[in-house]
Computed example of a mutant assay.
Amino acid sequence: MKWQGISEFVAVAEEGSFTSAAHKLDISTAQVSRQISQLEARLNVKLLYRTTRTVTITQEGSVYYQHCRAVLDGLQHAEDELLNLQSKPQGKIKLTATVTYGEQVILPLINDFQTLYPEVDVEAYLTNKRVDIVEDGYDLAIRIGDLKDSTLMARKLSQRSNFVCASPEYLDKYGTPHTISELSRHNCLLGTLDYWRFHVDGREKSVRVSGSLRYNSGFGLTQAALQGIGIVQLPDYYTKQYLSEGRLVPLLEAYRMAEEGIWAVYPQNRFMSPKLRVLIDHLVKNIE
């Protein structure tokens, strides 16, 4: 009994007339009117003002409508979830990621994903600019670091560390810095920012550095460091291989920033589609 009349009431509140609501629900206008009258009688409150020409929602009706709309949405979402759990992943996914991380990590995993789910089409746009994934129509964004947009959903994929490092040849020639202040005496190779981040006395500290090169390419900076030109601060996905091989040496480890999260971020939709769910699961499983 508690459910009777709710769909009819919500339809009238949204459509603005009994006739339009009846058409939307594919029932008779008389049935809509009868169900709402019975609902008002059961609640002992007037939900709608009716005249021969207009229908106006009352203050009480407005409050009741908000709750009823949420209940109906919840039921629809539940049905959609059940249907999608049983459906096969298919369709298109549009995603974005930063250029280097996308090239080195995400795109190879998407290639593997395509072999597993050939009916899912993936369109990837790599950029270091922060895009508005809702406004620009993205299903998924891979983001690194702190998440500031609380309206989006997020799932952690992995984490990264930023290493300060140099080649053994550079250190043999110019010495090894043991404190942050010593960086002023070294050739610090810059990216898009003119400062590096460190962890000092429990807090993040930005330290201005300078050097003979500035590239907006992590790959270019890595190659410069390998050639002994200077010291760099770069994420581990640039330096991990060379650190393990000894071609780069980690520096100032006591001041290294804590690991930053790498996230799969997606709009707060009514439900997550199977195609997006299996892609995110694939990334979580395979990203080191």
Rank of each mutant, 00 (worst) to 15 (best):
R143Y: 08
S167A: 12
Q76A: 14
E123Y: 10
C68T: 09
H67D: 09
Y174W: 06
G61V: 12
E103T: 14
H67W: 08
R160D: 13
L75A: 13
Y64E: 07
A124G: 06
D136R: 09
P108I: 13
F113A: 03
K88H: 15
K92C: 08
Q159V: 14
N84E: 15
H67I: 12
E135S: 07
V164E: 01
D194V: 13
K148V: 15
Q104H: 09
Y174H: 07
K129F: 12
I110G: 03
N84F: 12
L72H: 02
I110M: 09
L152E: 03
E169M: 09
Q90K: 06
Y64V: 12
I144C: 04
A78W: 11
G145S: 05
I142D: 00
Y195I: 11
R160N: 13
D73P: 05
Y65N: 03
S87K: 09
D121I: 13
Q76Y: 11
L189W: 01
N162V: 13
I110H: 02
I133A: 02
S184Y: 10
T98F: 07
E123K: 12
V55Y: 00
P168R: 06
E123V: 15
A124S: 05
Y174A: 07
I144K: 00
R197N: 10
R143E: 12
Q86P: 04
L147P: 03
A154T: 10
C165M: 02
E123P: 06
V164D: 00
R155V: 13
L147D: 06
F198K: 03
T115P: 02
L107N: 08
V164W: 01
G137H: 04
R160H: 12
Y170C: 05
N111Y: 10
E135I: 12
F163R: 01
V71P: 01
N84I: 10
H186Q: 02
D132S: 06
L109P: 01
V134I: 14
A154Y: 05
L171P: 02
G61C: 07
C188N: 06
